[in-house]
Amino acid sequence: MRSAKDFFRPLAVGAPAPVTEVPARPSRMIHFFDPSNEKMAARVPAMVGTVDVLLGNLEDAVKSDRKEAARAGLVAIAKATYFGEHTQLWTRVNALDSPWVLDDLTTLVTEIGDRLDVVMVPKVQGTEDIHYVDRILAQLEARAGLTRPILVHAILETARGVVNVDEIAAASPRMQGISLGPADLAADRRMKTTRVGGGHPGYLVREDAEVTAGESDVFGARPTHQQDLWHYTISRMVDACAAAGIFPYYGPFGDIKDVVGCEDQFRNAFLLGCVGAWSLHPVQIDIAKKVFSPSAQDVAHARRVKEAMGDGTGAVMLDGKMEDDASLKQCLVILELAERLSETDPELAELYG
């Protein structure tokens, strides 16, 4: 175990000092693109300023014979594009047991490390994975002469990763956040679903059967309610991130055409504490923006509670409901998010007044 005194010291001579607090930049949508796909790459400059995070994906969605092209494409895009203050550039590197990840890190940090905000690491199993990436990044940052550290984002997509999520979240000052990776996690858990995120109609509860003359009609019509396969895991991840001072995210929703289901799943994650989600198609960008931005009604209510509570002690009645210290804390979460989003989004600034 590293000493607490050493936790915020650089892991390599000449590397930048680690951050003591993760920057709270808007990241409602992490929009994935394949840098080896010329059509996708050509759209990137126009998306700057319209999305919170653009992520150059080098991992699963890129075929093995296109890995080097994707890496080179991301370098070219980063060098040719000014991302400004409101859009972050992230990348998802290849898995740590792959033959490509070392070249991913070496090339990206030394070539475009000054433009790269976050490295997303897939299939994180435990703290050893974060420590490995942490040390390599420090060495490469020192070689490249970077003045700020590149942050690390872990994907939770193995059963072992879920078991170790508390330790993963607190493994390094570089930790920016954690995303749920439902497809790989489902396979690792041997869950019997082939869906990428979202619910499953077979995962349900059924109401009791009607009883007539003392007999239960078990085969009669009985309403059912679909449950959320990911509720426990998201809650577990949110708690770990909150305790470590980093940010939790929902991952992919694979059914691109089901915009209603996507919005529902994103909203579930938002209500549980996630700050954003992945977008795999442009249609999901606006869904994430809508869901992970508090509504004008919620912001207005939060302001009323804050004003009514005065010094924050005691309790008040508003619209027939009791508001107290706990209510105020909930409202301050909404107001802090609204203020942060208003700084970068003129439409929301006007909506929130």
Results as ranks from 00 to 15, higher is better:
I112R: 13
R9A: 10
A326F: 14
A213W: 02
A213E: 15
Y203D: 02
P282N: 08
G161K: 07
E157R: 09
P248K: 12
L105T: 00
E350S: 10
V283N: 11
S279H: 07
A17H: 06
G220L: 15
R195I: 11
K290S: 04
R115V: 09
G49E: 05
F32A: 03
L54E: 00
Y250I: 01
E307F: 03
Y352N: 01
L55N: 08
Q125M: 12
D228Q: 04
P10T: 14
A61F: 04
F266W: 01
D258V: 00
R115H: 14
Q265I: 04
R66A: 12
E68R: 13
A80H: 05
A186T: 00
W230S: 02
T233Q: 05
A169K: 05
A221V: 14
G197S: 12
S279Q: 06
I155R: 00
K79T: 04
R160V: 06
D217C: 08
S98W: 11
I334C: 14
V260W: 04
V121H: 06
I287K: 03
T87Y: 12
L204Q: 03
V260C: 01
M175Q: 11
R148I: 03
G353H: 11
D34F: 10
A41C: 01
E38K: 10
Y132Q: 07
D134H: 15
I256H: 08
L280N: 11
I285R: 05
T147H: 13
A169G: 11
P10K: 10
V275Y: 14
D60F: 06
Q139C: 15
L271F: 11
W100A: 06
G273Y: 13
M191V: 04
H225C: 07
G84E: 13
F270C: 07
H31K: 04
V283G: 01
K123R: 11
P294R: 14
D114C: 03
L105S: 06
A69H: 08
F247Q: 05
W90P: 05
D60E: 14
R43G: 02
S327H: 07
T194H: 03
H231Y: 14
